[in-house]
Design a protein around this nucleic acid. Structure first.
Length: 159
DNA sequence: GGAACGATCTGC
DNA sequence: CAGATCGTTCCC
């Protein structure tokens, strides 16, 4: 389900990136924000699919998800890394002068590079198929940066 | 009403 | 490898 997003084009304004790493969060996942039911924060993930669920964490970072479950089902896919395609100068202005790769190779980094914050929570996600097929055999790995259900193989990467 | 804890990143 | 830094959640 989540791996179909791999190699898709993610667009926000003049910035675009190719999705190369995602992580699936289902409602039965103890690590998911939806695990304990609907709240004001996670309402977007319980809503209809195709909307951005953006949350703030560690007092300084935003992370970007795309709601994937049907209306009423709390599911989403966390965007963990993209490769910059368009608007790279703008990304560099937001992120500081760094190599292209390090502009968007982490959940908090790509949120900052695309200029996404809580104001964009609930916005319609712009994800396009521009002809690059998802990898036939994505790399599947255990998860990072969480404390619960770490072993669940829910992280998908483009080789 | 308060305390604990992050789906992280950066610089030391 | 520890600190930054604050919204959300849960417990009293």
């Amino acid at each position: 389900m989540a791996q179909v997003l791999l190699n898709k084009r993610f667009v926000v304004g003049e910035c675009a990136g190719r999705i190369v790493e995602v992580e699936a969060y289902t409602s039965d996942d103890p690590a998911s924000h939806c695990y304990r039911g609907r709240t004001a924060r996670n309402a977007v993930m319980f809503g209809p699919p195709g909307h951005l669920y953006i949350y703030f964490t560690y007092g300084m970072h935003h992370c970007v998800n795309i709601a994937t479950g049907a209306d009423g089902d709390g599911q989403g896919v966390l965007l963990r890394a993209v490769v910059p395609l368009d608007g790279i100068e703008l990304m560099r202005a937001r992120r500081g002068d760094r190599p292209d790769k390090s502009l968007t190779d982490g959940p908090g980094k790509l949120a900052q590079a695309f200029g996404l914050d809580l104001a964009d929570n609930g916005a319609v996600a712009e994800v396009y198929d521009d002809g690059v097929a998802p990898p036939a055999m994505p790399l599947i790995g255990h998860r990072i940066g969480i404390t619960r259900a770490v072993d669940w193989p829910r992280r998908y990467r483009v080789p």
